[in-house]
Amino acid sequence: MIIKKLEVGPIMANCFILGCESTKEAVVIDPGDDADRILMELGKSNLKVKYLINTHGHFDHVSANKRMKEATGAQIAIHPEDEPMLHELSQSALMFGLASENSPPADILLKDGDEVTFGEITLQVIHTPGHSKGGISLYTKGHLFSGDTLFAGSIGRTDLAGGDYDTLISNIKEKLLIFDDDTIVYTGHGPETTIGNEKRMNPFLR
Results as ranks from 00 to 15, higher is better:
M1W: 06
I3A: 09
K4Q: 14
K5P: 01
K5L: 11
L6C: 06
E7I: 12
P10L: 11
P10H: 08
P10S: 12
P10D: 10
A13C: 08
N14P: 05
F16I: 14
F16H: 09
I17A: 03
L18V: 13
L18G: 07
C20N: 11
E21R: 14
E21I: 10
K24E: 12
I29M: 11
I29Q: 02
D30C: 07
P31Y: 04
A35N: 04
D36E: 15
L39R: 10
L42M: 13
S45N: 15
N46Q: 14
L47Y: 03
V49R: 03
V49E: 03
V49D: 01
K50I: 08
K50C: 07
L52N: 04
L52D: 01
N54C: 15
N54R: 08
T55S: 14
H56F: 08
H56Y: 10
G57V: 09
H58Y: 10
D60F: 04
D60Y: 05
V62W: 00
A64F: 04
A64E: 05
K66L: 12
R67C: 01
M68V: 08
K69L: 11
K69S: 12
K69E: 13
T72Y: 06
Q75F: 08
I78Y: 00
I78M: 02
P80E: 11
D82K: 07
D82N: 10
D82G: 04
L86E: 05
H87Y: 11
L89V: 09
L94K: 15
L94E: 15
G97I: 12
G97A: 11
G97Y: 08
L98E: 11
A99V: 15
A99D: 14
P104Y: 12
P104A: 10
A106L: 10
D107K: 13
D107N: 15
L109G: 04
K111M: 11
D112E: 13
D112P: 05
D114G: 07
E115F: 09
F118C: 01
E120P: 03
E120H: 13
Q124S: 12
V125G: 02
H127V: 07
H127R: 10
T128G: 03
G130L: 08
G130A: 10
H131I: 07
K133A: 11
G134Y: 03
Y139F: 14
K141Q: 14
G142V: 13
H143Y: 09
F145D: 00
G147Y: 00
F151C: 00
S154D: 00
G156D: 02
R157D: 06
D159M: 10
G162Y: 09
G162E: 11
G163T: 10
G163A: 10
D164E: 15
Y165L: 12
T167G: 08
L168D: 03
S170R: 15
S170F: 06
N171Q: 13
K173L: 07
K175G: 05
F179R: 05
D182I: 13
V185C: 03
H189E: 01
H189R: 12
G190F: 01
G190I: 03
T194L: 07
I195N: 00
E198H: 00
M201A: 01
M201Y: 02
N202E: 04
F204P: 00
R206H: 10
R206F: 02
